[in-house]
Amino acid sequence: MSGKFGKKFEQVCDVLDRHEHHPDNLIAILQEIQEVYSYLPEDIMTYVATALGVSPGSVFGVATFYSHFTLAPKGKYVVRVCDGTACHVKRSEDIIKALEEELKLGGGKNTSDDLMFTLETVACLGACGLAPVVVINEEVHGSMNPEKAKALIEKIRSGETGHG
């Protein structure tokens, strides 16, 4: 833990320096900052506005325009369920419902209270041959069904508590 002391904010400073504090590079700056924090914290966006000499409102405008950016912290595991045409006809909706139930999400809430899981749907992952597809962080799981998806969550949970 101590080895990481203050690292994240220093990375923000490095990102800003690398982009020479130029407002034209705002999108790239936000992308790199999101890689550091996994989302865009308000205070950091305010800092970016100060450093670039623009209003916090314009940073907020860009951050909310692109769906790539997220303003709320995401869970340690980002679960993306594909709901593209192929996955949809193969009943991806049931998987989404099952996962929402399992993770106690839905109604606008997509991150679990323990900040462990974030559930997202995506339009198409381009892996239609494996439909329906669930991607957890970088790992792709094909031919899913509600039971298999729940089992994946269960596996992660037991792994986490085992380490905890």
Partner: peptide, 20 residues
């Protein structure tokens, strides 16, 4: 040169609002 109001979000969600 204040920029207190700005466009945020996109498409049908688009709105004029304040930061955060």
């Amino acid at each position: 040169s204040v920029g207190a109001l700005g466009f945020a979000y996109r498409g049908v969600q688009a709105q004029v609002g304040t930061c955060f």
